[in-house]
Design a protein around this nucleic acid. Sequence first.
DNA 1: GCATGTCATGTTAGCGCTATCTTCATGTGA
DNA 2: TCACATGAAGATAGCGCTAACATGACATGC
Lengths: 363, 363
Amino acid sequence: MSSTEKSPTRGRKSRTNANRPTVADVARAAEVSLMTVSRVVNHGTNVSEETRKKVEAAIAELGYVPNQAARNLAGGREVRIALLYSNPSSAYLSEFLMGSLGEASVNAAQIIVEYCEEGVRPADLVGKLAAHRANAVLLPPPLCDDERLLKRLQKAGLPMAQIATGRPSRHAYAVTIDDAGATEDLVRLLIEQGHSRIGYISGNPNQTVSELRQAGYEKALADADIAPRPDLIVSGDFSYRSGLQAAERLLASTEPPTAIVASNDDMAAAALAVAHRHGLDVPGDLSVCGFDDTAMATTIWPELTTIRQPISEMARQATAMLIADVRESPVAGVDARHVRLDCELVRRASHGPPRDMTVSPRA
Amino acid sequence: MSSTEKSPTRGRKSRTNANRPTVADVARAAEVSLMTVSRVVNHGTNVSEETRKKVEAAIAELGYVPNQAARNLAGGREVRIALLYSNPSSAYLSEFLMGSLGEASVNAAQIIVEYCEEGVRPADLVGKLAAHRANAVLLPPPLCDDERLLKRLQKAGLPMAQIATGRPSRHAYAVTIDDAGATEDLVRLLIEQGHSRIGYISGNPNQTVSELRQAGYEKALADADIAPRPDLIVSGDFSYRSGLQAAERLLASTEPPTAIVASNDDMAAAALAVAHRHGLDVPGDLSVCGFDDTAMATTIWPELTTIRQPISEMARQATAMLIADVRESPVAGVDARHVRLDCELVRRASHGPPRDMTVSPRA
DNA sequence: GCATGTCATGTTAGCGCTATCTTCATGTGA
DNA sequence: TCACATGAAGATAGCGCTAACATGACATGC
């Protein structure tokens, strides 16, 4: 029942958090007032260069680190960002979290991870968010495309950020990549290597990026005057399983493709497995490309040629936007901003010229 | 420059956090004092049943949620747990994070995710932790087995928790499973189905669980009076890549195994891929089993028979232990507690009786 | 009956920080 | 010259909560 029994500094010490230096300590050391220290630590306006240096020296010497709890209390602007997820693709999620948690940690914001079932009622969800005191929401795919959810969150006045959506909302922040362009690049690469029968495995139609990626594929073909063949476009849903089926169908064709572009890495990995099961050499007999550059891409063999999507960076930026919104702009929701990040074509070992090309290149 | 210009409630409102109800509001509504509300919200000792009900009703009515920042400030016991990771196996990490973040969120603790390179100097690391004001450390594998790191953290007086280690330290909390027993069960299952040539792909020797799992394999063989064959034990390092090589070696044997037990799912998946490349049917020609039951196990085809390791629950419990330590026990480090959780053999489609057994069972 | 204990509750004083107001020195232009 | 803006500080008052102590109402034992 008693813990501070033998503590030499009763009462006092037991409440203080491991007697860490406080602003007061720094102020004393630097021979300035409390507020001056606070000003230096924060924006740093209205402080003379000389004073700032003194304070900074004192901070360094004492190893002062601001107490975030006190800051939040005094400032009244605690940032609690709910990360809603429904797609348990662990590779995506963990990379996402790395970016988001990193940014949150730097800015002393809280990330609350909330699993959101497929058919959850948006109203219930909003209630839950309130209970968690969330004041911003992070929406990775596929939730970023859920219109009802977006509308509900907007109505609740919560700033939100869509990550990797194909259709950024006017009422939300959004961080995207050029899905169409990236896919186009990938397909163009294959065409340049001599492929003309290029199969495509599309993504889940409930994610808006699926359309964009497919459009990129079609555009690349059109630009090269290759007539699109409907039998070379097979629908998947981003799962490995669906990739297996899709690849089987593509390879069962009477005139099978010499390359398969899958709209994510999981399905590309599945296509690879199917190719091997059919006794095909990759990339000798069949080139296979993916999208995302998740861990899977370098896990499997041969390593996948794919599009590197900067998931972690996207999460980081989205988180930063929300933090800025909550901390600064009280008129949230109107001046939403959309950001598009670059992505990169990563050439690895799963693609190459088609077999007939290696015999007589440039046919 | 000015934001509260037209605000009807100057000064006052701009500082308060979206005028949420506070203890004072609840106290007023319930007609009791501030402290009584606090007591109800916390431990709840020394409050009459009648009063408690009144307060709880008021809390429910107003939708009061305690302000954690204020609590931490007043209580002086902010919990900041550093999660050190070096193994970027995303499947593991994201499941781990789910458990840990969930528990942390419920208990209003902070999780700080810190990437820790292979050869980082423990001294530097401790410095970094101090800068983050971390007051507890979570150590997933393989860091949980780094003796130098453990020693250094202990010296720094930081309570720590090892997750999935084979060698719990006296100075740390630990959450483990019965790695040896689980592997034994798996191998026994194969033996019961008629296998006797069972290959084994071991894990990274820098993780203590590797030994335990292999010991389980050997024990199961010994119990069944099957002479161990050194050529059936191949070393891997938990990576898919190493699994490919190991499986190739096993299958290249003059008398190849009829089953392969890999000490994790990634390597089992690799073994599966190699089997397919060799034209072997799984499980018809070869049974393949894994360990962990990560997303990989159900992603690939056929789905993997494996050991389900409750990663998320392990992370949750470890986090809970650390929170309890920081919040309550000031004599940390001595009364460390170790917990062992149950794990489960998950029978899926990648195992079955060996081919010759299907012809003449019970040979 | 009075000292003493126990329980339910109230009062007070901060936790460490920042918003806001105030002060005091400097410019600046009429 | 003085009113007035501007910049660089300091003083003060809380943010919402809880630890520690104080109070008052009973029950207990001698």
